[in-house]
């Protein structure tokens, strides 16, 4: 028994030694995992992009918005208050606090052809001035996703059937404003080029001619169409814009976190109906 007892003790001792080794191994493993996690955290922290524009906005609580207030209904100066008003102005006021609570939009008024220079020279953090996306400028600025499509649209009278796209226009009497340049996919462009378009001095005149029955369809920019449709009944859009003229919000290319946030906010605004409500308010 004594021998057995000794064996038992010896066995227990062996088990105990094995257990402590296992424990030691586990402890080392845990330490390694923690060290790796810490290193990964440090690495992530060092890789996190720096965005001085966003830092400045958070620090000052001000989002500086460059705009040329000569373009109603997107931006103009209210003669009674002297304030910049319009769809873009409202959008700026809604955008700022969503970047961070308490941030307010402040407008920096510059001429339209100086907007990009003002942005490049850090006169403002973003441009909100009915500015269409331009592929040629993507080396110098980062554009947000679109918040409004101002591309040319087909407008017809209520009750008109069979016109829903460019492909339905051959053989129809179509009006445009002077200076209209057919654009679109190659097939659509070809169709538009071959149409015997009637030209009017303004988009409004083309739409009046449509309303009066002189035309079967008119192709005008979506803003002119929205303004006109808001004032007059009896006309409707036929399909989506023929080409996209996407208004978006450019920032400097190094504002990498800011542009991400703006895109996120604009997506939210699309989903929650904010952009639709803004359009309804100003058209």
């Amino acid at each position: 028994m004594a021998g057995a007892s000794f064996d038992m003790r010896d066995k227990e001792s062996k088990i105990s030694r094995r257990g402590s080794r296992r424990l030691a191994r586990r402890s080392i493993l845990c330490l390694v995992v923690v060290a790796l996690a810490f290193a990964a955290w440090l690495l992530m922290r060092s890789l996190r992009p720096v965005d001085e524009t966003r830092d400045r906005i958070l620090e000052t609580g001000v989002l500086r918005v460059c705009t040329d207030p000569s373009w109603p209904p997107f931006e103009s100066v209210d003669p009674t208050t002297g304030q910049v008003v319009g769809l873009d102005a409202d959008l700026a006021h809604l955008l700022a606090p969503r970047i961070a609570p308490g941030v307010k939009a402040e407008f920096v008024v510059v001429g339209f052809d100086s907007l990009y220079d003002a942005l490049a020279a850090s006169r403002c953090d973003v441009v909100l001035s009915a500015l269409p996306y331009e592929a040629a400028r993507t080396r110098d600025v980062s554009y947000s996703i679109s918040y409004f499509n101002a591309g040319p649209v087909i407008v017809v009278r209520e009750g008109t059937e069979g016109i829903n796209a460019v492909q339905d226009l051959p053989g129809r009497v179509v009006g445009v404003e002077w200076g209209y340049v057919p654009e679109g996919e190659p097939k659509e462009k070809l169709i538009l080029q071959q149409l015997g378009l009637r030209r009017y001095d303004t988009a409004g005149e083309a739409l009046r001619a449509l309303q009066a029955g002189e035309l079967e369809a008119a192709i005008v920019d979506r803003i002119s169409a929205l303004v006109y449709l808001h004032q007059c009944e009896g006309l409707r859009f036929a399909g989506e814009p023929i080409v996209d003229v996407n208004y978006s919000i450019p920032v400097r290319p190094d504002a990498v976190l800011l542009i991400e946030e703006i895109n996120h906010i604009l997506l939210e605004m699309r989903r929650d109906g904010t952009l639709d409500r803004l359009q309804d308010k100003w058209f």
Partner: peptide, 18 residues
């Protein structure tokens, strides 16, 4: 794609304006 286009005498595809 802005009001600047309305300063020109011909369009980019050479269509003369009034």
């Amino acid at each position: 794609n802005s009001y600047l286009d309305y300063f020109t005498f011909v369009t980019p595809d050479f269509t003369p304006k009034p």
